[in-house]
């Protein structure tokens, strides 16, 4: 099986670094991601290692790192399924100043938990850290963060930690 040809059938945008055994598929259209993931699963990539985002000024890149336990040829391959999503514009600037860190609108991508159940906790982590809403995830709740960080998306590059407002917030909690 020539893995490169099989991957090129799924998407034309494939980056391969054979020396480091790193393969990368870039899917531009969120609608096609589900089909691409199904084809990868049929190929033998049966579990997700990590789901994460990479934050850029204008977009968030969602990456599913997948690998294989069942097909002998694929055990040595790390494949990154990449989906760049454009960030939406901020709707209301005034509203954003209320919270202790600026409120940023999340991005929305389809969830791949139905195909790879092993992504379930990984997608929850990517959601709370980067503000990526995985549509179709059965259980999309906050996982690691305490309450005061909800909707602040701390792993984005423009996250600012404002101590004074955090203290105000905590004082409000105490008064309640």
């Amino acid at each position: 099986m020539n893995i490169k040809d099989e991957l090129l059938k799924i998407s034309a945008n494939v980056v391969i670094d054979e020396k480091k055994a790193n393969y990368k598929i870039i899917i531009e259209d969120p609608v096609k991601i589900f089909d691409a993931a199904s084809s990868l699963k049929n190929l033998g990539f049966d579990h997700v290692v990590s789901v994460t985002g990479v934050d850029y000024p204008d977009k968030v890149e969602v990456i599913w790192h997948v690998s294989s336990y069942s097909v002998e040829d694929l055990k040595g391959i790390n494949l990154a399924l990449t989906l760049p999503v454009k960030k939406p514009e901020r709707v209301n600037q005034n509203e954003a100043q209320g919270n202790f860190a600026s409120k940023k609108p999340p991005v929305t991508v389809p969830s791949l938990v139905k195909i790879w159940p092993s992504a379930i906790f990984n997608e929850r982590e990517a959601f709370e850290m980067f503000g990526i809403i995985f549509e179709g995830h059965p259980d999309l709740r906050y996982l690691l963060l305490p309450e005061e960080f909800y909707e602040t998306w701390p792993m984005r590059k423009d996250f600012t930690y404002n101590r004074v407002n955090l203290l105000k917030y905590l004082r409000c909690l105490l008064n309640e």
């Binding site: 049966d46 579990h47 997700v48 336990y69 069942s70 159940p117 092993s118």
Partner: peptide
Amino acid sequence: AISLGVVGPNL
């Protein structure tokens, strides 16, 4: 074990 992505000795 494969579909849940379990690792290491447990796998």
